[in-house]
Computed example of a mutant assay.
Amino acid sequence: MGAATEASEPVRFKCVALPGVGGAFDVDIAGGRVRSITPSLSGDPVRLLLPAFIDLHLHADRAYAQGPRRARSLEDAVEQVEAVKRAATEEDIFERACKLFRRASAHGTTRLRTHVDIDPVVGWRPLAAVARARRQFEEVLDVSIVAFATAHLDPSSAIGRRTITEAVAGQADMIGTVVPFHEDPTVSLNALLDIATELDVGADLHIDERAGSGYLEELADACLTRKMHGRVTASHCCALATTPPADAARTIDKLAEARMTVIALPALNLHLQDRGSITPRRRGITPVREMLDAGVPVRFGSDNVMDVFYPYGDADPLEAAFLASITAHVDDESALLRGICDGRSRVEEGMEADLVVIEASTWNEAIARRPLPRTVLRRGRRVTVERSGQR
């Protein structure tokens, strides 16, 4: 077992700070829920109690699998990953996914979403391996799997439709693809949404990751036409940052109308966007503040972890929040928390006790230092992660 929860017993956290309110509090946990929150008489807080993290964009099948050299661009990373994928056995992928899940759990994540490649190059190895790792960690992590149709599997083709359908019938919970990688991106985009509608699953698409790409508005229009409100996620959306302001505003309004979640991925996009022989001029992140102002749900994900695409990272949502604050100038604590807790930003009486305790007295200190270890609760039970998962 890579991680487990201890027996359920009442827990009291004394003299903790809570997000969004001043002062120190004593928080009682029982029966898997927050039973009471009362002002503390024990002095100033030295720990911060937060909702547990929810990381909505990872690649568990690729984590820790690095290429022969650092990727020089997104296109170079895509080219390098082919050899890595071909060489990986199911056991390799399983071990890497378990390592990623241990790290995510140790950082305070209790729910995550991972894209898993499906295509003729890898067959069913990644999906089988990540599904097995999910079962290994089911006590401490809710893992949602996106069947990710790569450049080798066009959703508009007969084999693409059949493979995606089989993936959902097996282990996948959602479906996705990289829209511009296919011969006719518009046709592929619509085909994927048609499959999602037929199978009654959500869709999470990598879209407009390259500057100059422009399919996000098409995606919003297609979702509105199909009445897929709240069922579709758009990840990356970097190109929108270089779109003329009036066009960007129109697209953002459509995203809000479609209730589409946008996942910004500051670490990976800072690393690869505008990468070349000179210092990059672009920040590589979607217009987060404009989206928040328009009511678009914006989340911040970890994306790749120590792999071909990104050689760093540790599946720590606090790092994603820190980078979002720096790159997008999101200074609002509640917006950053909603971004890494899937819409939650408070600890309240009656809520399910998925919580994380940070050894910091304020939110600012928490994202500045990102201290470890952390106390993690899953439905009121303390999570323990085996020593090999700690650093």
Rank of each mutant, 00 (worst) to 15 (best):
G31A: 07
T186K: 02
A203I: 06
Q171H: 14
I278C: 10
T279H: 12
R275S: 06
K85T: 03
I207R: 00
L377W: 03
A128H: 10
R62I: 06
L216I: 09
A320Y: 10
E209S: 07
S40Y: 02
A104G: 07
E91W: 09
I145K: 03
A324W: 04
R369C: 13
R111D: 09
S188H: 01
L265F: 11
S277G: 10
E319K: 12
P10F: 02
I164G: 01
Q273G: 11
G214V: 03
I358L: 03
A172S: 14
A360N: 02
H206W: 01
R134Q: 14
L337W: 01
T89P: 04
L337P: 00
V130P: 01
Y310L: 14
M174Y: 15
A128R: 13
R135K: 15
C237R: 00
G230C: 14
A241H: 07
P19Q: 00
Q273N: 14
R72P: 05
S388Q: 12
L48Y: 02
T242P: 01
I37G: 01
C238A: 08
R231Q: 15
R259V: 08
A17C: 01
V46N: 13
A104R: 02
A77C: 10
T243M: 11
A196M: 09
V330T: 08
V84Y: 06
T186D: 00
R132Q: 12
S156Y: 00
L100E: 07
R111S: 15
M351A: 04
I263Q: 10
A234V: 02
A324C: 13
S40M: 09
P120Q: 13
R111G: 13
G20E: 00
E365Y: 03
S188C: 00
Q390G: 07
P287T: 12
H236P: 05
A220Q: 05
A203S: 13
L268R: 01
W124T: 14
V46H: 15
E365N: 08
A24Q: 06
A211L: 15
A366D: 05
E139Y: 07
T150C: 12
Y312C: 10
V356T: 08
E386I: 11
R289T: 13
A104S: 09
C238D: 04
R96P: 05
E82F: 05
E183W: 02
A17P: 01
R381N: 13
A320Q: 07
G389M: 09
R282N: 08
S42V: 04
L377Q: 05
V27M: 04
A128K: 14
L255P: 02
L372K: 12
R96K: 15
P311K: 15
H57E: 09
I145Y: 03
S277T: 09
R344W: 08
T110Q: 11
L49A: 01
Q80A: 08
K85N: 06
P51R: 03
D200I: 06
K99G: 10
